[in-house]
Design a protein around this nucleic acid. Sequence first.
DNA 1: GCCAACGTTGGC
DNA 2: GCCAACGTTGGC
Length: 157
Amino acid sequence: MAYWLMKSEPEVYSIEDLKSDGRTEWEGVRNYQARNYMMKEMKVGDIVLFYHSNAQPPGVAGLGTVSRLAKPDASSWNKKTPYYDEKSTPESPRWFCVEVAFKAEFSKIISLEDLREEPRLSKMEVLKKGQRLSIMPVRNEEFKIIEKMAQINSKIK
DNA sequence: GCCAACGTTGGC
DNA sequence: GCCAACGTTGGC
């Protein structure tokens, strides 16, 4: 089983939205590297760190799980969505998305600052300067550390 | 709102 | 196939 970090702007789609929806198609990814992670590597049961970007504060807000393998992203040929791409059609889809199911909402966001303060997380992709990918792999050890940080937070609260 | 970093586009 | 111009991301 693999671990991933997936970014979402909470004003667009937050962990609360996922909690109330139960599951969601991860539409709108328009970057090939992020698409390839979904298409080629993400498996049902993989764990997702749900990251709030462009947020106050930015950070990991909860957990999800991959609930369906990648399929063509229907928003890519839907002109009514902001994700429309004229080069993508149902016959020849260019973009794909997995489905993500809700797993947990953290009692307190593990902020980007918190992540930076933990030396064992210093190699995380999300902490690297200029990193803009919206989907990136997370190492097993890194996930365990973040999971523990979330448990500690929930006890304090 | 600013702007550094980076991906994409398109002219050549 | 190079690379300048442009658009986007996302922290601050």
